[in-house]
Every structure is written in structure tokens, then in C-alpha cells.
């Protein structure tokens, strides 16, 4: 009976989560926030929904006289089922699952203990009000959500003149150095090589990643030794990025320092479809920064090799 109630709490909480996320994605899609998958993952999907999952599970567990440790354990199980569900129903890749896990565990455990105290007090009107308020906020959130755009910039000094650096900025041979960013080591694709159709403005450029995925780019600014700016015309349909982030534009700026060195600046612009941005943008900017650094370190090494 006890096991059945625990299981029921987890099943109902996760069913609620699936239906709510489907509903909010549908709402945001209808509101005109189109991307590859239709709709965005709103603030509430990763915050209010896990809190409500915890509260719902706590409702089914309210008479079981569970200890704090057991509540925590079952809340972890509840969040784990949600993560497995996300990989099955939302086809999320494992890097995404690593990224969303801290949010889901923290908020589900938090929600479970909020629920534990709520249902201990037996104030049904208050409880219904709190849950209704959270559901209203979730619905409103779907209408107000907007994709978030950001730019990440990194700078590096290279001990080589700008004309030497330039030839490796436009296209470079494969990177063979070992990965040192933990997400790349965990299997996230990292940049390997860049190739171009022609060394000219308007030419096509390809950025090839370690798993074979290719970002197709068009060079929109081509000022030798100064500025290479390219728009992303097609990005791979990988579950880790599809519907979560669009890489919009990349740029390399070179500044001749007049002493035989060059300041290389790498800029990337992207649009995020997952919220809360304060959380996911921390990951996005960290990943973008490490993509920059991997490429820029390689350019530095090639440029300085024969100076």
C-alpha cells in the first residue's frame, strides 16, 4: 500500500509534468514563438513544473509518515523519472540531461518539502490557492516568453603578425589537441576543422565538429587581416541543440599591435529557446567560450609555429 502510494505520487507528478510542458509549448507555439520544434521551453517548465511535481507527489505521500531522508530519496526518484522521461518523450540528448538535472533535482526536492508542510497543515483552501497561482503563472509565462539573444566575446594575444594569423582564421587544418573542457570530455562535440569554398566575401565556410556535424556558414564580411564575419546558414539537427539554441553569427577580429603580435577577438551570437536564461545562458556562454578558446588556441599554435 505504501509502495503503491509512493509510486502513484511519482506517476501522477510526471504525467502532470508531461501534460503541462506539452500545453505550454503548444501555447508558446500558438503565440508565435516558432523554432525548429515549435515553441520554447519557458521559465516555468524547469522551475514551477518541478516544484508542482514535488507538491503533487507530497500530496500522495502525506499520510505515510515518511522521514525527511525518505522524502528526499523519493523526490530524487521523482526527478530521475522526469529526466528519463525527457530523454524518451522530448528526445533530449544526454548533455542536455546533465544540464537540466541540477534544476530538476533542486526544484523537485524543494517542492516536495513545501508540499509536505502544506499538507500537514491541512488548510485545503490555502493549498488549492497556492497550486492554482503556480498554474496561472505557468500559463502566463507561456504568453510572455521570448527567445533570448546573447553575444560571447573572447580575446587572445598571438605572437605573430596579423597577415599570418589571418590565413588560419579563415580556414584551419584539423585540431588534434586533447580536449580539456569537461563537457567536451563528456562527449559534447567540439570544433575540429574549418574549410572554405573560396577566400572571398560571400563564400561558403564550413565548421566541422568532432562528431561529424557541420555548421554551414556564409562569409558576410571578408576584410583580410582585419575582420571575418560569417552568418550561420544551416546548423545540424542534433537533439542537443535543436529547439534549444540557434547559433546566429560568428566573427574573428584581428588587431595588429604594431610589435609583431596580433590581438584576436572571437565573437559569437546565439539565440536561446530555453529558460530561465540566467541558468541556461550560463551554460551556453560557457560552452561558446570553450568553443572559441579551442579554435583560437589552435589558430595561435599554427600562427606561432613558423614565426
Amino acid at each position: 500500500m505504501k509502495a503503491q502510494k509512493i509510486l502513484t505520487g511519482i506517476v501522477v507528478a510526471n504525467t502532470f509534468a508531461i501534460l503541462t510542458i506539452a500545453f505550454t509549448k503548444w501555447l508558446s507555439w500558438h503565440h508565435g514563438l516558432l523554432n525548429d520544434l515549435g515553441g520554447v521551453f519557458i521559465y516555468s517548465d524547469f522551475i514551477i513544473v518541478p516544484i508542482l511535481m514535488g507538491i503533487i507527489a507530497a500530496y500522495f505521500w502525506r499520510d505515510l509518515s515518511l522521514s525527511g531522508g525518505k522524502y528526499t530519496l523519493f523526490a530524487i526518484c521523482n526527478a530521475t523519472v522526469a529526466i528519463v522521461g525527457a530523454s524518451i518523450f522530448l528526445k533530449e540528448g544526454y548533455i542536455c540531461l546533465i544540464i537540466i538535472s541540477p534544476l530538476l533535482f533542486g526544484f523537485t526536492i524543494g517542492g516536495t518539502f513545501i508540499g509536505k508542510v502544506m499538507f500537514k497543515k491541512n488548510k485545503n483552501t490555502l493549498n488549492v490557492s497556492v497550486i492554482s497561482l503556480l498554474l496561472i503563472v505557468t500559463t502566463l509565462d507561456a504568453f510572455t516568453a521570448k527567445p533570448y539573444e546573447n553575444m560571447v566575446s573572447d580575446t587572445m594575444t598571438i605572437n605573430a603578425p596579423s597577415e599570418k594569423v589571418w590565413q588560419y582564421v579563415v580556414a584551419y587544418e584539423p585540431i588534434k589537441e586533447k580536449e580539456n573542457y569537461w563537457l567536451f570530455q563528456a562527449g559534447m562535440p567540439s570544433p575540429v576543422q574549418s574549410t572554405v569554398d573560396c577566400f572571398c566575401q560571400g563564400g561558403g565556410r564550413k565548421c566541422i565538429f568532432s562528431n561529424g556535424y557541420v555548421f554551414d556558414e556564409k562569409m558576410v564580411v571578408y576584410k583580410p587581416n582585419i575582420d571575418l564575419t560569417f552568418d550561420i546558414t544551416h546548423q545540424p539537427r542534433d537533439p542537443e541543440i535543436m529547439g534549444h539554441i540557434d547559433i546566429l553569427r560568428g566573427q574573428f577580429l584581428l588587431k595588429d599591435n604594431g610589435d609583431g603580435t596580433t590581438t584576436l577577438t572571437g565573437n559569437s551570437w546565439y539565440r536561446l529557446y530555453v529558460m530561465p536564461t540566467w541558468y541556461f545562458d550560463t551554460w551556453a556562454s560557457s560552452i561558446t567560450r570553450n568553443v572559441h578558446l579551442r579554435v583560437m588556441e589552435h589558430i595561435k599554435k599554427l600562427s606561432e609555429k613558423n614565426v
Binding site: S67, G68, G69, I76, P102, G106, F107, I109, G110, I114
Partner: peptide
């Protein structure tokens, strides 16, 4: 409350006896 959720997760993993004392 959510921060407390994370703290609880940490306590559950590393100092579970504290949750027992709180109970």
C-alpha cells in the same frame, strides 16, 4: 526554498544523519 532543496540534496548525500535529527 529551492536553495534549501539543493542543501537538502547535499545533506542527503553527505550527512544523512542530520535529516534524521531534524525529523
Amino acid at each position: 526554498h529551492i536553495f534549501d532543496g539543493f542543501v537538502k540534496l547535499h545533506t542527503f548525500i553527505f550527512r544523512r544523519e542530520i535529516l534524521h535529527f531534524i525529523d
